[in-house]
Structure formats: C-alpha cells, structure tokens
Design a protein around this nucleic acid. Structure first.
Length: 271
DNA sequence: ATGCGGACCTGTTAGC
DNA sequence: TGCTAACAGGTCCGCA
C-alpha cells in the first residue's frame, strides 16, 4: 500500500498530532519487524519532544533533541492517531503514546516495516545514506537518469525503482510513469535517449505529484477510519489492468514480470 | 560494478 | 463450498 505519495500523505496527516508533543511512553507489542525494533524506542524516546516530522524517500523521520525515530511502512504498514486507551487490534505492533491523550499506532500485518532509533544525523544512517535524490526536488532530472544509465543493461523499470538513482518510485508508479512517457519497461536503461529520459523524469514528477494531491484529500483525517487505498486507483492508467483496454489506443494491456515484480504496459504505445 | 535471486511476513484472491 | 497456490504497494543482502 504505501508508496511515496501515501508516506507523504501520512506525514502531512500526522504532523499536527505529533510535532510539539512529548512522548510519554512507547509500547512495543511485537519487536520482530523486518529489523528488530530498536531498544532506544522504549529506552530513550519517552520523555522527549517530537520537534519535527520529515520524510526521506519512504522513511518517516521523527526528530528529537537526542536522536531520531526512523519509521518505514514496508508493504502493509500504516500509522494512525488513536485515543490512548483504544484497544489494539491484531498487528498493532507499536504505540507511541503522546502527552495529548492520544497515541500514534503502528500497524503492519506483514512486518516488513521498521521502527529504528538513531542518535545524530538520521540521513547518515546506513539505510538512508546511499539514497538518491527526491523526485520532487531540484536534484532530480532527465539529465541525471541519462547520465547514470549509460552502459546499464538492466530494464529501465528496474533502473527507476533503484533508490540510488531516484527514491520513491515504487512498483505502481514505475509502470504508470513509463506509460506516460511511452517507454517500454523492458527496454535496457542504457539504450534510451536523453530526450526520452527528460520525458520520463517529467512523468515521474507528474504522477507522484498528482498522487500526493489525491492522497491528501482522502487520508486527511487520521483519527477516523483506516485510510483505504483506492483514492488514486481511478487515476491509474495501466497498473492492475492486465488485458484491459489502453486508455489511448484501446489495445489490451500486457502484464509481465520484470525484476520479479508485476509490470503493466501497452505494447502499442510504449516502445 | 552490476544484476539477479532469495529473504523477510501475513492476508486476500484466483483457481481447481 | 473448500482447499491450495499464487500474489501483494518494499528493500536489503549475498552471490556470481
């Protein structure tokens, strides 16, 4: 569920509830996530004020005076604001109890997420230090994609999903951006022109930006029901539409596994 | 250095 | 209807 737009939407929704609040305690019901939940989450975080909530790639960074809580939602994770006495459901692994009487609750059935504590600069953490530019920042461009792709033989879809190249392009938006740019996802990264990379970079920016706008309207209220996906689904041109008609040429869309991930494209419009 | 496959988990859906 | 297999929005690691 969480691709970059949803992580950013989560950040925006959580910010007014957590920034400026002090953590009263942390409850860890399941510490075995993709990595074991850091001891600092229960040992150090309580008593500290959350000064800011940042996002880097799909990581959420909760800054305090003594360090940063790094959270990743993995495939199935979510963060919600609940009343502190609301009984936990299955897979509600962590509560960060705040001095507002509420708690930030982490739910993650598949446990691919992470809850890590780090002292010092979170951006230098091992999981973050290698990451490429944010797609919605000025550091990202077709020029960069072109330059880094020379002599790369991997499929262009794999290439744009590589966080060292650019962050935040997940499996849905990789397919969507390549469709918008008219590029066959199987094409070798190193054999695509500068002009086409300019178009692809613009498509990535457009599709992620549009999805953030959509997410912002449906997940605004984090105290309500769980945020269902689907808000952006009607905007998807190819993802999940195997055999459906291409919105441009009506030809049946194709589904093919590329780099172990399902990919969707139009063999007529994407070359 | 690059690229590939496997790993981590559970829930839902497709198919027989 | 019920069982099993395949698949799911992410990434990290290790091997060739």
């Amino acid at each position: 569920m969480p691709e970059l737009p949803e992580v950013e939407t989560s950040r925006l929704g959580l910010t007014p509830h957590v920034v400026g609040r002090t953590v009263e305690k942390a409850i860890v019901r399941q510490k075995r996530l993709r990595q074991t939940v850091s001891a600092g989450v229960t040992g150090t975080l309580p008593g500290l004020r959350l000064d800011a909530l940042r996002r880097r790639a799909k990581y959420l960074l909760f800054d305090t005076a003594k360090g940063t809580l790094i959270v990743h939602l993995g495939m199935s994770g979510s963060l919600r604001i609940v009343q502190r006495d609301e009984p936990p459901m299955a897979h509600d692994h962590v509560d960060i109890v705040l001095d507002s009487g509420r708690a930030m609750r982490f739910r993650d059935p598949r446990r691919f997420g992470c809850f890590l504590w780090t002292r010092g600069d979170a951006l230098q953490h091992k999981l973050l230090s290698h990451l490429g530019p944010e797609p919605l920042s000025g550091d990202f461009s077709g020029e960069r994609l072109y330059a880094l792709s020379r002599k790369r033989r991997t499929a262009v879809k794999n290439f744009i999903m590589d966080g060292r190249i650019v962050v935040g392009v997940g499996n849905i938006y990789a397919s969507e951006a390549l469709f918008r740019a008219g590029i066959d996802p199987r094409r070798q990264a190193g054999r695509i022109s500068r002009a086409r990379y300019d178009k692809l970079a613009a498509a990535i920016v457009d599709v992620l930006g549009a999805a953030i706008v959509q997410g912002g309207t449906s997940l605004r209220d984090f105290t309500g029901q769980d945020g269902q996906p689907g808000y952006f689904q009607q905007k998807l041109n190819v993802y999940g539409r195997a055999d459906g008609p291409c919105v441009v040429c009506k030809a049946p869309l194709r589904q093919q596994v590329i780099g172990q991930r399902s990919s969707f494209f139009c063999t007529n419009c994407q070359k």
